[in-house]
Design a protein around this nucleic acid. Structure first.
Length: 583
DNA sequence: GCCGTTTTCGGCCCGACTGTTTTCAGTCG
Protein backbone atom coordinates (compact mmCIF):
# COMPACT_ATOMS: atom_id res chain seq x y z
CA UNK A 1 0.00 0.00 0.00
CA UNK A 2 1.40 3.35 -1.08
CA UNK A 3 1.59 6.55 0.93
CA UNK A 4 -1.25 8.21 -0.96
CA UNK A 5 -3.59 5.33 -0.12
CA UNK A 6 -2.54 5.27 3.53
CA UNK A 7 -3.18 9.00 3.69
CA UNK A 8 -6.60 8.46 2.17
CA UNK A 9 -7.49 5.89 4.80
CA UNK A 10 -6.49 8.34 7.54
CA UNK A 11 -8.63 11.11 6.09
CA UNK A 12 -11.55 8.72 5.89
CA UNK A 13 -10.99 7.90 9.54
CA UNK A 14 -11.02 11.60 10.31
CA UNK A 15 -14.21 12.21 8.36
CA UNK A 16 -16.08 9.33 9.94
CA UNK A 17 -14.89 10.23 13.42
CA UNK A 18 -16.08 13.75 12.84
CA UNK A 19 -19.54 12.57 11.85
CA UNK A 20 -19.49 10.41 14.96
CA UNK A 21 -18.83 13.61 16.91
CA UNK A 22 -15.53 12.32 18.26
CA UNK A 23 -12.99 14.47 20.08
CA UNK A 24 -12.04 17.13 17.50
CA UNK A 25 -8.39 16.83 18.44
CA UNK A 26 -8.45 13.15 17.76
CA UNK A 27 -9.91 13.98 14.35
CA UNK A 28 -7.14 16.46 13.77
CA UNK A 29 -4.54 13.87 14.74
CA UNK A 30 -5.76 11.69 11.85
CA UNK A 31 -5.69 14.63 9.47
CA UNK A 32 -2.16 15.54 10.54
CA UNK A 33 -1.06 11.97 10.08
CA UNK A 34 -2.66 11.84 6.62
CA UNK A 35 -0.83 14.98 5.64
CA UNK A 36 2.50 13.73 6.92
CA UNK A 37 2.20 10.40 5.13
CA UNK A 38 1.04 11.97 1.87
CA UNK A 39 3.91 14.41 1.87
CA UNK A 40 6.58 11.92 2.85
CA UNK A 41 8.91 11.10 -0.02
CA UNK A 42 9.90 7.70 1.31
CA UNK A 43 7.23 5.00 1.21
CA UNK A 44 5.90 3.97 4.61
CA UNK A 45 6.10 0.43 3.26
CA UNK A 46 9.82 0.83 3.03
CA UNK A 47 10.15 2.34 6.49
CA UNK A 48 8.23 -0.61 7.89
CA UNK A 49 10.39 -3.09 5.98
CA UNK A 50 13.53 -1.50 7.34
CA UNK A 51 12.07 -1.65 10.84
CA UNK A 52 12.28 2.07 11.44
CA UNK A 53 10.53 3.52 14.46
CA UNK A 54 7.62 5.35 12.86
CA UNK A 55 6.87 7.31 16.01
CA UNK A 56 10.02 9.30 15.27
CA UNK A 57 7.97 11.00 12.56
CA UNK A 58 6.07 14.12 13.58
CA UNK A 59 2.31 13.54 13.97
CA UNK A 60 2.86 9.79 14.24
CA UNK A 61 2.43 8.32 17.70
CA UNK A 62 1.94 4.78 18.91
CA UNK A 63 -1.54 4.40 17.48
CA UNK A 64 -0.74 5.82 14.03
CA UNK A 65 2.38 3.69 13.85
CA UNK A 66 0.29 0.60 14.55
CA UNK A 67 -2.20 1.66 11.88
CA UNK A 68 0.57 2.12 9.32
CA UNK A 69 2.00 -1.30 10.09
CA UNK A 70 -1.42 -2.86 9.71
CA UNK A 71 -2.07 -1.07 6.41
CA UNK A 72 1.29 -2.01 4.98
CA UNK A 73 0.97 -5.62 6.05
CA UNK A 74 -2.71 -6.34 5.37
CA UNK A 75 -3.82 -3.59 3.01
CA UNK A 76 -6.73 -2.62 5.24
CA UNK A 77 -7.41 -1.07 8.60
CA UNK A 78 -9.70 -2.82 11.08
CA UNK A 79 -10.36 0.43 12.92
CA UNK A 80 -11.80 1.92 9.73
CA UNK A 81 -13.84 -1.17 9.00
CA UNK A 82 -15.31 -1.06 12.48
CA UNK A 83 -16.16 2.59 12.14
CA UNK A 84 -17.75 1.95 8.77
CA UNK A 85 -20.04 -0.59 10.45
CA UNK A 86 -21.55 2.26 12.40
CA UNK A 87 -21.43 5.05 9.85
CA UNK A 88 -21.76 4.62 6.09
CA UNK A 89 -18.56 5.53 4.28
CA UNK A 90 -20.49 7.24 1.52
CA UNK A 91 -21.32 10.07 3.94
CA UNK A 92 -17.73 11.20 3.37
CA UNK A 93 -18.82 12.56 -0.02
CA UNK A 94 -21.80 14.27 1.58
CA UNK A 95 -19.69 16.33 3.99
CA UNK A 96 -17.62 17.53 1.04
CA UNK A 97 -20.64 19.48 -0.20
CA UNK A 98 -20.65 23.21 0.53
CA UNK A 99 -22.79 24.05 3.52
CA UNK A 100 -22.82 20.46 4.74
CA UNK A 101 -20.45 19.43 7.46
CA UNK A 102 -20.32 16.50 9.83
CA UNK A 103 -23.23 17.65 12.00
CA UNK A 104 -25.63 18.18 9.15
CA UNK A 105 -24.55 15.01 7.39
CA UNK A 106 -25.30 13.08 10.55
CA UNK A 107 -28.70 14.69 10.82
CA UNK A 108 -29.55 13.90 7.19
CA UNK A 109 -28.54 10.32 7.76
CA UNK A 110 -30.20 9.78 11.15
CA UNK A 111 -33.46 11.54 10.36
CA UNK A 112 -33.91 10.93 6.63
CA UNK A 113 -31.77 7.83 6.17
CA UNK A 114 -29.64 9.58 3.54
CA UNK A 115 -26.33 7.83 2.94
CA UNK A 116 -25.18 9.04 -0.48
CA UNK A 117 -24.98 12.20 -2.55
CA UNK A 118 -27.46 10.68 -5.01
CA UNK A 119 -30.03 10.04 -2.28
CA UNK A 120 -29.50 13.52 -0.92
CA UNK A 121 -30.14 14.97 -4.35
CA UNK A 122 -33.46 13.10 -4.69
CA UNK A 123 -34.71 14.03 -1.24
CA UNK A 124 -33.65 17.65 -1.59
CA UNK A 125 -35.34 17.87 -4.99
CA UNK A 126 -38.48 16.50 -3.34
CA UNK A 127 -38.32 19.25 -0.73
CA UNK A 128 -37.81 16.90 2.19
CA UNK A 129 -34.55 18.43 3.33
CA UNK A 130 -36.01 21.89 3.89
CA UNK A 131 -38.51 20.43 6.31
CA UNK A 132 -35.76 19.25 8.64
CA UNK A 133 -35.10 21.49 11.65
CA UNK A 134 -31.86 23.35 11.22
CA UNK A 135 -32.33 23.33 7.46
CA UNK A 136 -34.55 25.50 5.30
CA UNK A 137 -35.28 26.44 1.73
CA UNK A 138 -31.95 28.16 1.30
CA UNK A 139 -29.95 25.27 2.70
CA UNK A 140 -31.79 22.88 0.43
CA UNK A 141 -31.11 25.01 -2.64
CA UNK A 142 -27.46 25.40 -1.69
CA UNK A 143 -27.13 21.64 -1.39
CA UNK A 144 -28.63 21.10 -4.84
CA UNK A 145 -26.37 23.69 -6.42
CA UNK A 146 -23.44 22.21 -4.56
CA UNK A 147 -24.14 18.73 -5.88
CA UNK A 148 -24.21 20.06 -9.42
CA UNK A 149 -20.83 21.73 -8.95
CA UNK A 150 -19.45 18.69 -7.16
CA UNK A 151 -20.20 16.62 -10.26
CA UNK A 152 -18.78 19.14 -12.70
CA UNK A 153 -15.50 20.03 -11.05
CA UNK A 154 -13.94 17.39 -8.95
CA UNK A 155 -10.32 18.28 -9.36
CA UNK A 156 -8.22 21.20 -8.29
CA UNK A 157 -6.99 23.80 -10.75
CA UNK A 158 -3.48 23.70 -12.08
CA UNK A 159 -1.58 26.80 -11.05
CA UNK A 160 -1.22 27.90 -14.66
CA UNK A 161 -4.99 27.68 -15.18
CA UNK A 162 -5.59 29.64 -11.99
CA UNK A 163 -3.19 32.29 -13.33
CA UNK A 164 -5.26 32.61 -16.48
CA UNK A 165 -8.50 32.95 -14.53
CA UNK A 166 -7.19 35.30 -11.86
CA UNK A 167 -5.47 37.89 -14.06
CA UNK A 168 -8.64 39.21 -15.74
CA UNK A 169 -10.47 39.29 -12.42
CA UNK A 170 -7.71 41.38 -10.84
CA UNK A 171 -7.83 43.73 -13.79
CA UNK A 172 -11.60 44.04 -13.48
CA UNK A 173 -11.45 44.85 -9.78
CA UNK A 174 -8.58 47.28 -10.16
CA UNK A 175 -10.60 49.35 -12.58
CA UNK A 176 -12.69 50.36 -9.59
CA UNK A 177 -11.42 53.58 -8.05
CA UNK A 178 -12.45 52.37 -4.59
CA UNK A 179 -9.78 49.65 -4.66
CA UNK A 180 -6.62 50.99 -3.05
CA UNK A 181 -4.69 47.76 -2.89
CA UNK A 182 -5.34 44.26 -4.17
CA UNK A 183 -3.35 41.05 -3.95
CA UNK A 184 -3.81 37.32 -4.23
CA UNK A 185 -2.98 35.29 -1.13
CA UNK A 186 -3.70 31.63 -0.37
CA UNK A 187 -2.15 28.58 -1.97
CA UNK A 188 -1.86 30.62 -5.15
CA UNK A 189 0.63 32.91 -3.45
CA UNK A 190 2.48 29.96 -1.98
CA UNK A 191 2.67 28.70 -5.58
CA UNK A 192 1.28 25.28 -4.78
CA UNK A 193 1.11 23.18 -7.95
CA UNK A 194 -2.68 23.10 -7.86
CA UNK A 195 -5.11 25.42 -6.12
CA UNK A 196 -8.59 24.67 -4.81
CA UNK A 197 -9.74 28.26 -4.67
CA UNK A 198 -8.48 31.81 -4.86
CA UNK A 199 -8.10 34.21 -1.92
CA UNK A 200 -8.09 37.91 -2.70
CA UNK A 201 -7.17 40.64 -0.24
CA UNK A 202 -8.07 44.27 -0.70
CA UNK A 203 -7.95 47.61 0.98
CA UNK A 204 -10.87 49.71 -0.17
CA UNK A 205 -12.11 53.22 0.43
CA UNK A 206 -15.64 51.89 0.07
CA UNK A 207 -15.88 48.23 1.02
CA UNK A 208 -19.52 47.91 0.08
CA UNK A 209 -18.98 49.21 -3.43
CA UNK A 210 -16.04 46.89 -3.99
CA UNK A 211 -17.95 43.90 -2.69
CA UNK A 212 -20.77 44.75 -5.08
CA UNK A 213 -18.37 45.01 -7.98
CA UNK A 214 -16.86 41.68 -6.98
CA UNK A 215 -20.17 39.83 -6.87
CA UNK A 216 -21.27 41.32 -10.18
CA UNK A 217 -18.17 40.15 -12.09
CA UNK A 218 -19.62 38.74 -15.33
CA UNK A 219 -18.04 35.32 -14.77
CA UNK A 220 -19.78 34.86 -11.41
CA UNK A 221 -22.36 32.08 -11.41
CA UNK A 222 -23.10 31.95 -7.70
CA UNK A 223 -22.67 34.32 -4.80
CA UNK A 224 -22.06 32.11 -1.80
CA UNK A 225 -21.71 34.92 0.69
CA UNK A 226 -21.33 38.66 0.61
CA UNK A 227 -20.75 40.37 3.94
CA UNK A 228 -19.15 43.73 4.61
CA UNK A 229 -15.62 42.39 4.88
CA UNK A 230 -15.82 39.00 3.27
CA UNK A 231 -17.38 37.58 0.13
CA UNK A 232 -17.24 34.32 -1.76
CA UNK A 233 -18.34 33.52 -5.29
CA UNK A 234 -18.15 30.69 -7.81
CA UNK A 235 -17.03 31.42 -11.35
CA UNK A 236 -18.20 29.74 -14.56
CA UNK A 237 -14.96 27.80 -14.63
CA UNK A 238 -15.88 26.25 -11.30
CA UNK A 239 -13.18 28.20 -9.52
CA UNK A 240 -14.24 29.65 -6.17
CA UNK A 241 -12.94 33.05 -5.16
CA UNK A 242 -12.86 34.66 -1.73
CA UNK A 243 -12.52 38.38 -1.28
CA UNK A 244 -11.52 39.84 2.04
CA UNK A 245 -11.67 43.61 2.47
CA UNK A 246 -9.73 45.14 5.32
CA UNK A 247 -7.96 48.19 6.65
CA UNK A 248 -4.32 49.22 6.44
CA UNK A 249 -3.28 48.54 10.03
CA UNK A 250 -4.27 44.87 9.64
CA UNK A 251 -3.16 44.30 6.08
CA UNK A 252 0.06 42.42 6.85
CA UNK A 253 -1.59 40.22 9.46
CA UNK A 254 -4.35 39.42 7.00
CA UNK A 255 -1.80 38.56 4.33
CA UNK A 256 -0.17 36.12 6.71
CA UNK A 257 -3.49 34.67 7.75
CA UNK A 258 -4.91 34.39 4.23
CA UNK A 259 -1.71 33.12 2.65
CA UNK A 260 -1.56 30.20 5.04
CA UNK A 261 -0.93 27.42 4.99
CA UNK A 262 -3.32 26.60 7.74
CA UNK A 263 -0.62 24.51 9.38
CA UNK A 264 1.86 27.35 9.17
CA UNK A 265 -0.70 29.68 10.77
CA UNK A 266 -1.34 27.28 13.60
CA UNK A 267 2.37 27.03 14.27
CA UNK A 268 2.63 30.83 14.33
CA UNK A 269 -0.33 31.23 16.64
CA UNK A 270 1.07 28.71 19.05
CA UNK A 271 4.30 30.65 19.04
CA UNK A 272 2.40 33.86 19.72
CA UNK A 273 0.65 32.27 22.68
CA UNK A 274 3.96 31.04 24.08
CA UNK A 275 5.18 34.61 23.91
CA UNK A 276 2.11 35.97 25.67
CA UNK A 277 0.49 37.32 22.52
CA UNK A 278 -2.39 36.47 20.25
CA UNK A 279 -2.15 36.34 16.46
CA UNK A 280 -5.22 36.80 14.33
CA UNK A 281 -5.91 38.20 10.88
CA UNK A 282 -6.14 41.62 12.54
CA UNK A 283 -2.71 41.67 14.04
CA UNK A 284 -0.50 40.59 16.89
CA UNK A 285 -1.96 41.57 20.26
CA UNK A 286 -0.23 41.60 23.58
CA UNK A 287 -2.66 39.85 25.89
CA UNK A 288 -3.99 42.34 28.46
CA UNK A 289 -2.61 41.48 31.93
CA UNK A 290 -3.91 37.95 32.40
CA UNK A 291 -7.44 39.06 33.15
CA UNK A 292 -8.96 35.89 34.58
CA UNK A 293 -9.75 32.80 32.57
CA UNK A 294 -13.27 34.03 32.02
CA UNK A 295 -12.36 36.61 29.40
CA UNK A 296 -14.87 34.85 27.24
CA UNK A 297 -15.59 38.14 25.55
CA UNK A 298 -14.77 37.43 21.96
CA UNK A 299 -13.34 40.81 21.07
CA UNK A 300 -10.83 40.40 18.24
CA UNK A 301 -9.30 43.75 19.14
CA UNK A 302 -8.69 42.95 22.81
CA UNK A 303 -5.21 43.74 24.12
CA UNK A 304 -2.53 46.04 22.83
CA UNK A 305 -1.91 45.75 19.10
CA UNK A 306 1.83 45.44 18.51
CA UNK A 307 1.96 44.62 14.79
CA UNK A 308 -0.22 44.11 11.75
CA UNK A 309 0.48 46.59 8.97
CA UNK A 310 3.09 44.55 7.12
CA UNK A 311 3.99 40.89 7.07
CA UNK A 312 7.51 41.74 8.08
CA UNK A 313 6.26 43.50 11.22
CA UNK A 314 4.00 40.59 12.10
CA UNK A 315 6.85 38.09 11.88
CA UNK A 316 9.17 40.48 13.69
CA UNK A 317 6.67 40.77 16.55
CA UNK A 318 7.13 37.05 16.99
CA UNK A 319 10.90 37.40 16.81
CA UNK A 320 11.11 35.85 13.37
CA UNK A 321 12.50 37.02 10.05
CA UNK A 322 10.02 37.26 7.20
CA UNK A 323 9.32 33.85 5.70
CA UNK A 324 8.83 33.47 1.94
CA UNK A 325 5.28 32.31 1.07
CA UNK A 326 6.59 29.23 -0.76
CA UNK A 327 8.02 27.95 2.51
CA UNK A 328 4.88 28.37 4.61
CA UNK A 329 3.86 24.73 4.84
CA UNK A 330 4.95 23.90 8.37
CA UNK A 331 7.82 21.82 7.11
CA UNK A 332 10.24 23.25 9.62
CA UNK A 333 10.33 26.82 8.30
CA UNK A 334 9.19 28.44 11.55
CA UNK A 335 11.85 26.58 13.50
CA UNK A 336 14.49 27.40 10.88
CA UNK A 337 13.44 31.05 10.95
CA UNK A 338 13.72 31.11 14.73
CA UNK A 339 17.30 29.85 14.40
CA UNK A 340 17.88 32.34 11.62
CA UNK A 341 18.68 29.50 9.26
CA UNK A 342 16.22 30.04 6.45
CA UNK A 343 17.71 29.17 3.05
CA UNK A 344 18.41 31.89 0.51
CA UNK A 345 15.99 30.60 -2.10
CA UNK A 346 16.81 30.30 -5.78
CA UNK A 347 15.31 33.09 -7.85
CA UNK A 348 14.27 33.36 -11.49
CA UNK A 349 17.05 35.90 -11.98
CA UNK A 350 19.60 33.25 -10.95
CA UNK A 351 18.87 31.06 -13.94
CA UNK A 352 21.71 31.01 -16.43
CA UNK A 353 20.48 28.45 -18.91
CA UNK A 354 17.70 26.11 -19.98
CA UNK A 355 18.59 22.44 -20.27
CA UNK A 356 15.65 20.93 -22.09
CA UNK A 357 13.92 22.19 -25.22
CA UNK A 358 12.80 20.94 -28.60
CA UNK A 359 12.94 22.34 -32.12
CA UNK A 360 11.32 21.53 -35.46
CA UNK A 361 13.91 18.77 -35.79
CA UNK A 362 11.54 16.69 -33.65
CA UNK A 363 8.21 17.83 -32.20
CA UNK A 364 9.01 21.47 -31.46
CA UNK A 365 7.24 24.32 -33.23
CA UNK A 366 10.18 26.67 -33.71
CA UNK A 367 13.48 26.33 -35.54
CA UNK A 368 16.75 25.98 -33.71
CA UNK A 369 17.69 29.53 -34.51
CA UNK A 370 14.39 30.89 -33.22
CA UNK A 371 14.94 29.05 -29.96
CA UNK A 372 18.51 30.33 -29.75
CA UNK A 373 17.47 33.93 -30.30
CA UNK A 374 14.74 33.56 -27.67
CA UNK A 375 17.11 32.05 -25.09
CA UNK A 376 19.64 34.74 -25.77
CA UNK A 377 16.96 37.39 -25.32
CA UNK A 378 16.22 35.90 -21.90
CA UNK A 379 19.80 36.53 -20.91
CA UNK A 380 20.87 32.90 -20.77
CA UNK A 381 24.54 31.98 -21.11
CA UNK A 382 23.77 28.50 -22.41
CA UNK A 383 21.00 26.26 -23.62
CA UNK A 384 20.66 22.59 -24.44
CA UNK A 385 18.89 21.43 -27.54
CA UNK A 386 17.24 18.18 -26.59
CA UNK A 387 15.20 16.87 -29.48
CA UNK A 388 13.76 13.40 -29.04
CA UNK A 389 15.50 10.16 -29.94
CA UNK A 390 14.30 7.74 -32.62
CA UNK A 391 12.14 5.50 -30.42
CA UNK A 392 9.63 8.31 -30.20
CA UNK A 393 8.73 8.01 -33.88
CA UNK A 394 5.55 10.07 -33.45
CA UNK A 395 7.66 13.08 -32.52
CA UNK A 396 10.04 12.61 -35.42
CA UNK A 397 12.81 11.53 -33.06
CA UNK A 398 16.34 11.70 -34.43
CA UNK A 399 18.57 8.73 -35.23
CA UNK A 400 22.37 8.97 -35.38
CA UNK A 401 22.41 10.13 -39.00
CA UNK A 402 19.94 13.00 -38.50
CA UNK A 403 21.55 13.92 -35.22
CA UNK A 404 24.85 14.48 -37.03
CA UNK A 405 23.03 16.65 -39.56
CA UNK A 406 21.57 18.64 -36.73
CA UNK A 407 25.02 19.23 -35.27
CA UNK A 408 26.08 20.87 -38.52
CA UNK A 409 23.19 23.30 -38.28
CA UNK A 410 23.96 23.96 -34.63
CA UNK A 411 27.55 24.72 -35.58
CA UNK A 412 26.46 27.33 -38.13
CA UNK A 413 24.02 28.95 -35.78
CA UNK A 414 26.57 28.94 -32.97
CA UNK A 415 28.86 31.04 -35.18
CA UNK A 416 26.16 33.63 -35.64
CA UNK A 417 25.36 33.68 -31.92
CA UNK A 418 28.58 33.70 -29.92
CA UNK A 419 26.76 35.30 -26.98
CA UNK A 420 25.16 32.00 -25.99
CA UNK A 421 26.59 28.51 -25.84
CA UNK A 422 24.42 25.94 -27.63
CA UNK A 423 24.90 22.53 -26.04
CA UNK A 424 24.56 19.50 -28.26
CA UNK A 425 22.13 17.29 -26.45
CA UNK A 426 19.26 14.89 -26.87
CA UNK A 427 16.36 13.68 -24.77
CA UNK A 428 17.28 10.04 -25.13
CA UNK A 429 14.58 7.46 -24.48
CA UNK A 430 15.17 4.89 -21.80
CA UNK A 431 14.04 1.71 -23.55
CA UNK A 432 12.02 -0.95 -21.75
CA UNK A 433 15.13 -2.93 -20.80
CA UNK A 434 16.96 0.10 -19.43
CA UNK A 435 19.27 0.57 -22.42
CA UNK A 436 19.45 3.93 -24.15
CA UNK A 437 18.01 4.81 -27.55
CA UNK A 438 21.30 6.11 -28.96
CA UNK A 439 24.62 4.46 -29.74
CA UNK A 440 27.39 4.87 -27.17
CA UNK A 441 29.76 6.59 -29.61
CA UNK A 442 27.09 9.21 -30.28
CA UNK A 443 26.39 9.68 -26.58
CA UNK A 444 30.08 10.38 -26.07
CA UNK A 445 29.99 13.19 -28.57
CA UNK A 446 27.07 14.97 -26.92
CA UNK A 447 27.70 17.88 -24.55
CA UNK A 448 24.83 16.81 -22.33
CA UNK A 449 22.87 13.56 -22.17
CA UNK A 450 19.30 13.84 -20.89
CA UNK A 451 17.41 10.58 -20.47
CA UNK A 452 13.72 9.97 -19.90
CA UNK A 453 10.98 7.35 -19.81
CA UNK A 454 8.30 7.87 -22.47
CA UNK A 455 6.84 4.40 -22.85
CA UNK A 456 5.73 1.31 -20.94
CA UNK A 457 4.40 3.32 -18.01
CA UNK A 458 2.50 0.27 -16.84
CA UNK A 459 5.53 -1.88 -15.99
CA UNK A 460 5.44 -3.43 -12.50
CA UNK A 461 7.24 -1.23 -9.97
CA UNK A 462 10.24 -3.53 -9.58
CA UNK A 463 10.85 -3.69 -13.34
CA UNK A 464 10.28 0.02 -13.79
CA UNK A 465 12.78 0.78 -11.05
CA UNK A 466 15.36 -1.62 -12.45
CA UNK A 467 14.92 -0.08 -15.89
CA UNK A 468 15.63 3.43 -14.64
CA UNK A 469 18.51 2.33 -12.41
CA UNK A 470 20.15 0.64 -15.39
CA UNK A 471 19.93 3.84 -17.41
CA UNK A 472 21.37 5.96 -14.60
CA UNK A 473 24.40 3.69 -14.40
CA UNK A 474 25.33 4.42 -17.99
CA UNK A 475 28.49 6.53 -17.68
CA UNK A 476 27.38 9.16 -20.22
CA UNK A 477 24.11 10.09 -18.57
CA UNK A 478 23.89 13.61 -17.11
CA UNK A 479 20.25 14.33 -16.35
CA UNK A 480 17.15 12.25 -15.61
CA UNK A 481 14.22 14.18 -17.07
CA UNK A 482 10.69 14.28 -15.58
CA UNK A 483 11.52 11.35 -13.29
CA UNK A 484 8.00 10.29 -12.27
CA UNK A 485 6.18 10.83 -15.56
CA UNK A 486 3.11 12.32 -13.97
CA UNK A 487 0.82 14.82 -15.65
CA UNK A 488 -1.04 16.86 -13.09
CA UNK A 489 -4.78 16.00 -12.99
CA UNK A 490 -4.27 13.73 -15.98
CA UNK A 491 -1.86 10.88 -15.40
CA UNK A 492 -0.50 9.54 -12.13
CA UNK A 493 3.23 8.93 -11.77
CA UNK A 494 4.25 5.50 -12.94
CA UNK A 495 4.99 3.02 -10.20
CA UNK A 496 8.61 2.74 -9.15
CA UNK A 497 10.90 3.28 -6.17
CA UNK A 498 11.76 6.94 -6.29
CA UNK A 499 14.09 6.84 -3.29
CA UNK A 500 16.17 4.09 -4.89
CA UNK A 501 16.38 6.10 -8.09
CA UNK A 502 17.48 9.19 -6.18
CA UNK A 503 20.16 7.28 -4.32
CA UNK A 504 21.39 5.79 -7.58
CA UNK A 505 21.46 9.22 -9.21
CA UNK A 506 23.54 10.48 -6.32
CA UNK A 507 26.02 7.61 -6.60
CA UNK A 508 26.42 8.08 -10.34
CA UNK A 509 26.60 11.85 -10.35
CA UNK A 510 23.34 12.20 -12.28
CA UNK A 511 21.32 15.39 -11.92
CA UNK A 512 17.55 15.10 -11.54
CA UNK A 513 15.28 17.36 -13.49
CA UNK A 514 12.57 19.60 -12.19
CA UNK A 515 10.47 19.91 -15.31
CA UNK A 516 9.05 23.42 -15.16
CA UNK A 517 6.12 22.76 -17.42
CA UNK A 518 3.11 23.51 -15.18
CA UNK A 519 1.34 20.33 -16.25
CA UNK A 520 4.34 18.30 -15.12
CA UNK A 521 6.26 19.99 -12.28
CA UNK A 522 8.14 16.75 -12.01
CA UNK A 523 9.84 16.21 -9.55
CA UNK A 524 7.35 17.71 -7.15
CA UNK A 525 8.21 19.69 -4.03
CA UNK A 526 8.44 16.89 -1.47
CA UNK A 527 10.54 14.77 -3.83
CA UNK A 528 12.87 17.69 -4.37
CA UNK A 529 13.26 18.11 -0.63
CA UNK A 530 14.42 14.52 -0.44
CA UNK A 531 16.81 15.08 -3.35
CA UNK A 532 18.21 18.10 -1.56
CA UNK A 533 18.72 16.13 1.63
CA UNK A 534 20.66 13.55 -0.36
CA UNK A 535 22.85 16.30 -1.76
CA UNK A 536 21.63 15.82 -5.33
CA UNK A 537 21.69 18.69 -7.73
CA UNK A 538 18.64 19.68 -9.72
CA UNK A 539 18.19 21.01 -13.26
CA UNK A 540 15.19 23.27 -13.73
CA UNK A 541 14.20 22.94 -17.39
CA UNK A 542 11.20 24.17 -19.34
CA UNK A 543 10.98 21.30 -21.86
CA UNK A 544 9.89 24.08 -24.23
CA UNK A 545 8.27 22.99 -27.49
CA UNK A 546 7.92 26.56 -28.72
CA UNK A 547 9.47 29.91 -27.95
CA UNK A 548 6.79 31.06 -25.55
CA UNK A 549 7.20 27.91 -23.43
CA UNK A 550 10.59 29.23 -22.37
CA UNK A 551 8.66 31.63 -20.12
CA UNK A 552 7.37 28.72 -18.04
CA UNK A 553 10.70 28.68 -16.22
CA UNK A 554 9.20 30.61 -13.31
CA UNK A 555 6.86 27.71 -12.46
CA UNK A 556 9.89 25.51 -12.02
CA UNK A 557 11.70 28.07 -9.91
CA UNK A 558 8.64 28.52 -7.72
CA UNK A 559 8.39 24.79 -7.20
CA UNK A 560 12.10 24.67 -6.36
CA UNK A 561 11.59 27.40 -3.78
CA UNK A 562 8.84 25.33 -2.19
CA UNK A 563 11.46 22.62 -1.78
CA UNK A 564 13.88 25.02 -0.05
CA UNK A 565 16.34 24.94 -2.95
CA UNK A 566 19.05 27.58 -3.05
CA UNK A 567 20.82 28.52 -6.24
CA UNK A 568 23.71 26.27 -5.20
CA UNK A 569 21.35 23.31 -5.53
CA UNK A 570 20.47 24.13 -9.12
CA UNK A 571 22.96 23.23 -11.88
CA UNK A 572 21.61 25.65 -14.44
CA UNK A 573 22.02 28.51 -12.01
CA UNK A 574 25.76 27.99 -12.49
CA UNK A 575 27.63 30.35 -14.82
CA UNK A 576 28.70 28.68 -18.09
CA UNK A 577 32.31 28.06 -17.02
CA UNK A 578 31.31 26.33 -13.81
CA UNK A 579 28.53 24.43 -15.51
CA UNK A 580 30.93 22.97 -18.06
CA UNK A 581 33.44 22.07 -15.36
CA UNK A 582 30.95 20.31 -13.13
CA UNK A 583 31.15 16.88 -14.81
C1' DG B 1 -4.59 10.91 19.11
C1' DC B 2 -0.21 13.69 19.67
C1' DC B 3 3.02 15.99 22.43
C1' DG B 4 6.53 17.86 26.19
C1' DT B 5 12.60 24.33 28.50
C1' DT B 6 6.51 24.28 33.39
C1' DT B 7 3.93 18.92 31.33
C1' DT B 8 3.24 11.54 30.93
C1' DC B 9 -1.86 15.13 31.95
C1' DG B 10 -4.08 18.44 29.93
C1' DG B 11 -3.63 21.12 26.69
C1' DC B 12 -4.56 21.42 21.43
C1' DC B 13 -5.78 28.58 16.51
C1' DC B 14 -9.13 32.29 15.58
C1' DG B 15 -12.87 34.69 13.64
C1' DA B 16 -16.77 35.77 9.85
C1' DC B 17 -20.94 34.62 7.76
C1' DT B 18 -25.35 32.23 7.11
C1' DG B 19 -29.63 30.44 8.15
C1' DT B 20 -32.85 29.53 11.02
C1' DT B 21 -32.23 30.96 15.05
C1' DT B 22 -35.82 33.82 19.78
C1' DT B 23 -29.68 33.80 21.41
C1' DC B 24 -26.68 30.60 18.37
C1' DA B 25 -24.92 26.35 16.08
C1' DG B 26 -22.77 24.92 12.13
C1' DT B 27 -19.66 25.62 8.50
C1' DC B 28 -15.75 27.47 6.50
C1' DG B 29 -11.17 29.16 5.67
Amino acid sequence: MENLEIARVFSQMADLLEIQDANPFRVRAYRNAARLVDGHAKPMRKLVEEENDLTELPAIGKEMARHIHELVETGSLSALDELAQKIPRSLIDVIELPGVGPKKAKKLWKELGIETVDELEHRAAAGEVAALSGFGDKSQQKILTGIEQFRQHRSRFKLVDADRLVMPLLEYLQQSSEVERLEVAGSYRRRVETVGDIDLLAIASDAKAVMERFTSYPQVTLVQMAGTTRGRVSLQSGLEVDLRILTGPSYGAAMVYFTGSKEHNIKLRKRAIEQGSRLSEYGVFRQAGDDEEGSAERDPWAGEMVAGRTEKQVYAAMELPWIAPELREDRGEVEAAARNELPVLVDLADMKGDLQMHSTWSDGKNSIEEMVVACSARGYEYMALTDHSKALAMTGGLDARRLREQWKEIEEIQERHPEIRILRSQEVDILADGTLDLEDEMLEELDLVVVAVHSRFELPAAEQTARILAALQHPQVDILAHPTGRLINRRPPFEFQLDEVLHCAKENGVVVELNANPTRLDLKDTHLMLARELGLRVAISTDAHRVRDLDLMHYGVEQARRAWLAKEDVVNALPLEDFLKRQ
